[in-house]
Design a protein around this nucleic acid. Structure first.
Lengths: 221, 221
DNA sequence: CAAATAGTGTCTGTAAGACACTATCCC
DNA sequence: GGGATAGTGTCTTACAGACACTATTTG
C-alpha cells in the first residue's frame, strides 16, 4: 500500500497533510413547526454547534457523518449528502483542518426520543446563527438544497410516513419552503407523482381525507 | 499553532490524515464547436486525465487549482468553483487520497495560445470518458453546473467578449446546452438582462446585428 | 432585384395563481 | 342544519414554443 514513491523518492505521508473533519446539518420538521436544525454543545467551549468529527483512516465521509451523529446526538439510520468543503487554513485554531459540510434529514418522530436536552437541541434554521467555523453557512446551503429538492418531488426525504393525507404532505412542504402554499395548486402539482392508497382518514370534523403514497423514489435511508 | 492537545494528550498531527488533492474540469467553447474539457497527459502512465495537484500546507483549494492549471496546462487567470469530494479510500493506489473536484471556465481565445498539444488537449465533454479516479464524474457534474448557470443568465462565465451580438451569445449558449435554441425565444429571454451597446456589426450580407453588454454581473475572474 | 441575416407580431398550449363552488364528515 | 375540512371547476395571467412576417444589409 505505501510502497509508492514519487520522483523525489518520497511517500505521500512524507508531505504535510490536513486533518479532515465532517460537520453535518441535520434537518427535521417538528410537528406543526418550522424547518429546524440539530445543534450539539461543544465539548470544549460549551457553545452550540453542528455535530461533527474527524475522519478516520480508510473511512468514507458518509460513515464519519453517521458515526458522529450516533456519538454526539444519539441519532441513527440516516443518509448524509455532501455539500461543500470549508478550506480556510486559518478557520480552526488547532491547526490545518478542512471540514466537509453535509446535509442529513431525519423524521421528527425518530428524533424526538432520547435526546439529552442539555447537550442536544433543535433550532429553527432562521434562528440558528452565530455558530463558529462557518457552520451557519452549512445550514444555509443545506436548507437551500432541501428546498430545491422539495420543489420538484413529494417529500423526497421521507419526513412523513406513508400513507399520508394531502394536508399532511403540504404542511411538511410548507415548513421546508418557509411559506404557506396554496392547497389547490399544491394538490394539482403533487397528484401526478402520487398513488392513491386504500382508506381515508379524518382528524376531527370535516370530510375525511384520501391517503396517498409516493410514486417517486424517496431518498435512500 | 501546534500547542493544541486533545483529551488523550495528542496533537492533530498524531492522528492519521489523508492526502488532499484537487482535480479540475476546465471547460471552454471552441469557435463554432461544442462544450469541451481540458485534458492533460498523466506524467506516470501517459493516460489523459484532468489537471490536478496535491494541496500544500496553508494553501486554499482554489489556489491549488490555479497552481496546478498554471503548471500542468499553462493556463492562468481563472476563478475555480468547488464541486464535490471524492472520498473512496481505495480510489488511489498510492494511499489514502481525497480529491476535491472543481469547475473552471476559460474563454477559448485565452486558451488557444501556447498549448503543448502532446501534453494538453481539448475534448468535447461527450467524448471525454474513460478517465481514472472518477474524473468522468467531475466533468459530468461540472457540465451540469455550467448548464444550470447558463439557463438563467447571459453568458455568466464570460465566454464571449463584450460587446457581442445576440447571435454570438446564442451560439455559446447552444454549445453549453448541447442543443439548438430558438432565436426568437432566446432573444426575448435574454433582452431584460442585457444593455444595448453603441454600434452595429455585420458578418457578410444581411442586416447588421445590434450589439449588447451584460446587465448582470459576470463570474469573478 | 435576390439572397442573407436581424428582429418583431402574434397565435397557441401549458401551467400557476386565485377564488368560488361542491362534497362529506362530526356535532 | 351548522361548522369544518377535503376536493374540483374555471377564470386569469404569464410565458415558452412556433411560425410568419418585416427590416436592412451585400452583391
Amino acid at each position: 500500500m505505501s510502497e509508492y514513491r514519487d520522483a523525489a523518492g518520497k511517500r505521500l505521508v512524507d508531505y504535510p497533510r490536513p486533518s479532515v473533519a465532517v460537520d453535518t446539518a441535520v434537518l427535521t420538521v417538528p410537528v406543526e413547526d418550522e424547518l429546524s436544525v440539530l445543534q450539539v454543545r461543544d465539548a470544549v467551549d460549551g457553545d452550540w454547534r453542528l455535530p461533527g468529527t474527524f475522519v478516520h483512516e480508510g473511512e468514507r465521509l458518509a460513515d464519519a457523518v453517521l458515526r458522529s451523529l450516533q456519538a454526539k446526538a444519539g441519532v441513527t439510520g440516516l443518509a448524509p449528502q455532501q455539500l461543500q468543503v470549508f478550506d480556510d487554513p486559518a478557520r480552526d485554531s488547532r491547526g490545518w483542518v478542512m471540514s466537509v459540510g453535509h446535509l442529513d434529514v431525519v423524521p421528527f418522530s425518530s428524533l424526538s426520543r432520547g435526546l439529552d436536552e442539555s447537550q442536544v437541541r433543535l433550532m429553527p434554521v432562521a434562528a440558528a446563527t452565530g455558530m463558529v467555523h462557518g457552520h451557519d453557512d452549512i445550514v444555509a446551503v443545506a436548507a437551500a438544497r432541501l428546498r430545491a429538492a422539495y420543489e420538484v418531488a413529494p417529500d423526497p426525504w421521507g419526513l412523513v410516513a406513508e400513507p399520508f393525507t394531502m394536508t399532511e404532505l403540504r404542511r411538511v412542504h410548507e415548513a421546508v419552503a418557509g411559506r404557506a402554499l396554496l392547497p389547490d395548486s399544491f394538490r394539482r402539482a403533487m397528484m401526478p407523482m402520487l398513488l392513491a392508497a386504500e382508506g381515508k382518514r379524518a382528524e376531527g370534523p370535516g370530510k375525511p381525507a384520501g391517503v396517498w403514497r409516493r410514486l417517486t423514489e424517496t431518498h435512500p435511508r
